[in-house]
Computed example of a mutant assay.
Amino acid sequence: MYTPKYYQENDWATVSGFIRRHSFALLMSIHDGVPFGTHLPVELEEKEPGAFLLRGHIANDNPQSEDFKSGQTFLAVFTDPHAYISSSWYEKEKIPTWNYIAVHVYGQLRILTEAELVDSLTKLMDKYEAASACPVHISDIPEKSLHNNLRAITGFEMTLDRIETRFKLSQNRNDRDHAEIIKQLRASGDTQAVEIAEEMAKRRQAGQ
């Protein structure tokens, strides 16, 4: 991913926090000579202190599952939020742009054992069911139904061999334009625009 230096984010706490908040990823590989992607939840886990990996699962009927034993490098793309930046908000310049955050992770895949897959699914359900009024746990699923579903999917873990970041948040704008962009994004009422505005404000306050 092309990223000018002033848009790069190298703080792991910031990057890992973003991955965890925006964990519905695009997993990409090369399948039969062409790019192939699947949208799926991918969770960042700390396997041991300081050692991180990504975990997820895919339907066996998905052709991409055939790539899991290929030894190739996979790409997981995490993105959102994003917002259009109108040039009418600038004092002088008249070229509009787009602000956004994206993280690209490159790594190798390993297929999970059934026990590891169950552990991964348990953590996934517990995380997203926590906000439910009536949370469902994996132990609530009838054994036969769970077994049938486990046979239909393949779990994987992915190493974090290379991470690329692009936190494009108007870092190159002067204080007047920067403040106006934040004002306009907040006024839009759009949740993604507001999230971009808050991230911009936090970084400018920190001198970034």
Rank of each mutant, 00 (worst) to 15 (best):
M1Y: 09
Y2T: 05
K5A: 15
Y7S: 01
E9S: 07
N10W: 05
D11R: 15
A13F: 04
A13L: 14
T14M: 08
T14G: 06
V15S: 01
V15W: 01
H22Q: 08
F36W: 09
G37N: 11
L40R: 06
L44A: 02
E46D: 02
K47D: 15
P49Y: 00
G50N: 08
L53N: 13
L54P: 04
G56D: 04
I58W: 04
A59W: 04
N60G: 11
D61C: 13
P63I: 09
P63N: 10
P63M: 11
P63T: 12
Q64P: 02
F68D: 02
K69N: 14
S70I: 01
Q72L: 10
D80I: 00
D80V: 01
A83N: 00
S87E: 06
S88K: 14
E91I: 11
E91S: 10
D119N: 13
T122M: 01
L124D: 03
A133R: 08
C134V: 12
P135H: 07
P142S: 03
K144C: 06
K144V: 13
S145H: 13
H147Y: 12
N148Y: 10
N149M: 12
N149A: 09
L150V: 08
L150T: 04
R151L: 15
T154E: 09
E157A: 06
T159N: 10
T159L: 11
T159K: 11
L160C: 02
D161K: 10
R162V: 09
I163F: 04
I163H: 04
R166G: 05
F167C: 00
L169V: 03
L169R: 01
N172L: 14
N174H: 05
A179V: 05
E180M: 12
I182D: 00
Q184P: 00
L185R: 03
R186P: 00
G189Q: 02
G189K: 06
V194S: 05
I196E: 00
K202T: 13
Q205V: 14
A206Q: 13
